[in-house]
Structures are given as structure tokens and as C-alpha cells.
Amino acid sequence: MTTLPRIAPMLATPGHLPPAATDGQWAYEVKQDGQRAMAYVEADGSLRLLARSGADITAAYPELAPLGAALGGVPAVLDGEIVALDDQGRSDFERLQSRMGLAGSPLKAARMAERVPAQLVLFDVVFLDGTSLLARPYAERRAALERLALDGPHWSTPSVAVGHGENALAMTREAGLEGIVAKRLTSAYEPGVRARSWIKIRHVRTVDVIVGGWVPGRGRLGGLPGALLVGERHASGLRYAGSVGTGWSDAERTRLAELLRVAAVDTCPFDETPPVAGARWVLPRLVGEVRYATRTKAGRLRQPSWHRLRPDLAPDDTG
């Protein structure tokens, strides 16, 4: 049996479209809104799925197990995104959340697979039939992936566009998708690195933040979070990034209240205590994604709005 190497996923850097003069040197993929996963397929057809954090999430997605047989005995390590689709065929992270965190509950995972089926969207192959492809250019890896013809009931290999970045961005905007990822055709695969050769271009600005505290709401929101105090990880600790007070549904606000209660501590986790009256502190372990307009000169988020909780990310995965 081939011993498959463990490979951390390569990460994209937030940014803008490449210059028009170099447009033909890039491929453009639809940015999926799901859970990143590395798929390890052994020669015997067994499948193992690892999240970006390194956690084994195989049991959470039983419908993906037949992918191994689809490779016909060829061992491989594939990179992709697990998504749940809405009624219009778009990836919907809120739907996927009901599938996440079930690796320790295989019976519940099997029931949820019937209600909210998952899809594994494949976009790279980094090890194939005993050979590492890490140093090969993206264009060559992509061609190898397409030759595998992995399109099944719960997995797919969507097409990419070479050049025409402006058109790709406009089409995803019109379709209500999150954005695109631009990948330089000559780029090697850099495990665990947030590289400039992969650029994610979103239609709204978002950032992954760590919750360090909260302020209780008033009136009917008494006991529930009226605002979250969030920060960003840097070399010496957790830097305060601002207060987020909009963007939740009632159900998510209630869920957050319980998570905050369990994580309560007496000391402020930020490098510098923010001047926020009535603040309550929590262990800096909850990760969320926030939409925002711009940043202040001090790096604070302007007009932030809560987008979603990120249970698939650990605090060290942000940035």
C-alpha cells in the first residue's frame, strides 16, 4: 500500500484581479463557500478527509466515501472544498453548518446526509499514483486532475477559465456567488502557505476574526450579545479589531450566547483592553467571519457586520 504524505492545504491571499497585461497567465475558479478538505484516497479505495485544521472529518460526510472507488485503485491526495448547495445550485455555508462537527456522531451524520447532501468540489491534485506533484506548475496539476474525470453524485471538478478575469468576476457577481480565486498557471503548490500566486477576490470584503469579548444587549436582548468584540491574531498576541453589532439572526444570536457563556473568563484576552463599557471577556477560541467596508488607520474594521461563525477554523488558522 502506498503511504500517502500528509499535505497542508495551500491558501490564497485576499486581493484584486491581476493586471490586465498578465491576465492570460492566470486561471480563474469560482470561490466556493464551504469547508476546505484534503482528500486522501488509498489504492484500496478507502477515503480519508482532513479539514484545514488537520482534524479528521471523514465520518461527517459518509456520502463522499465512494469517491475512493471512482479513482479505480490509483492512490491520490486531492484538494477541494466540501459544500452544501442551495436551490439554485450555489454553495451555502449556512446549510453546510448542519453537517459540520458530526465526525464523532456517524449515525447522525448519515441521517443529515439524506437531508442536506454534501458535494466535494475538487480543484487540485497534489499526489498521484506514487508521485508528488507539489513542484509541478498549476496548469500541469490541473490537467492531471481533469484526466481523472472525477464527476459523480457527490463530487465534481468544475471547469476553470484561463484569462478573462474581468468576465469571470462579473459572471460570479451576477450569479450571486462569493467571488473567484485567481491562480498563476506556473505556480507550484506550497503546503500551508498563504501565497501571492493564489489570489481570492470577493465581491465584499471579509475577514476571519477571533471573538475576545462581548457586550450584553438591552431590552429584549438582555442576556444575549448586543455586540461582539473581535480581534486578529498577530506575532505577539490578539489585536483588537473592533465591535460587531449587526448581522445575526435570532437563532444565531442565541447560539452565540451559549458559546460565550461556556467560554467566559475574567481577564481581557486582547493585547490592550478596548475602552468598551460593560465588556465581558471570553477565551479567544471562537472564530467568525465578518463583512466590513474599510479599515481605519489603526486597523479597526469600519461598518463591520457579522457574516457567520467558522467552526471549521481554529484561532491559529486565521490570518
Score class of each variant (00 low, 15 high):
residue 115 R to K: 14
residue 179 G to M: 01
residue 160 V to K: 13
residue 23 D to I: 08
residue 282 V to L: 08
residue 279 A to D: 08
residue 26 W to V: 14
residue 233 R to S: 08
residue 144 A to D: 07
residue 125 V to Q: 05
residue 61 Y to T: 05
residue 272 E to L: 15
residue 205 R to W: 05
residue 137 P to M: 15
residue 127 F to N: 07
residue 104 G to D: 11
residue 46 S to K: 10
residue 310 R to P: 02
residue 31 K to S: 13
residue 310 R to Y: 03
residue 160 V to Y: 11
residue 167 N to T: 15
residue 60 A to T: 11
residue 232 E to K: 09
residue 6 R to C: 07
residue 272 E to S: 14
residue 70 A to E: 09
residue 218 R to L: 13
residue 168 A to S: 11
residue 128 L to M: 02
residue 91 S to W: 01
residue 319 G to H: 00
residue 194 R to Q: 01
residue 134 L to H: 02
residue 295 R to T: 12
residue 10 M to I: 00
residue 279 A to R: 07
residue 313 L to E: 02
residue 161 A to W: 04
residue 106 P to F: 04
residue 154 H to P: 13
residue 222 G to M: 10
residue 158 P to L: 03
residue 274 P to C: 10
residue 306 W to V: 01
residue 135 A to V: 06
residue 192 G to I: 02
residue 98 S to D: 14
residue 264 A to N: 13
residue 212 G to I: 02
residue 217 G to I: 04
residue 209 V to L: 13
residue 110 A to W: 00
residue 152 G to N: 08
residue 275 P to S: 12
residue 30 V to L: 14
residue 194 R to I: 00
residue 193 V to H: 03
residue 68 G to Y: 06
residue 32 Q to V: 15
residue 177 L to S: 11
residue 17 L to I: 06
residue 123 F to S: 10
residue 213 G to N: 04
residue 171 M to E: 15
residue 109 A to E: 08
residue 278 G to D: 11
residue 132 S to A: 10
residue 150 L to M: 04
residue 117 P to N: 06
residue 71 L to E: 05
residue 265 V to N: 06
residue 179 G to L: 04
residue 123 F to Q: 05
residue 14 P to H: 00
residue 109 A to I: 10
residue 309 L to S: 05
residue 238 L to K: 00
residue 46 S to F: 02
residue 311 P to E: 07
residue 222 G to P: 02
residue 187 S to M: 11
residue 301 L to T: 01
residue 148 L to W: 04
residue 315 P to A: 08
residue 131 T to S: 12
residue 105 S to I: 10
residue 158 P to C: 05
residue 215 V to C: 08
residue 179 G to W: 00
residue 150 L to V: 03
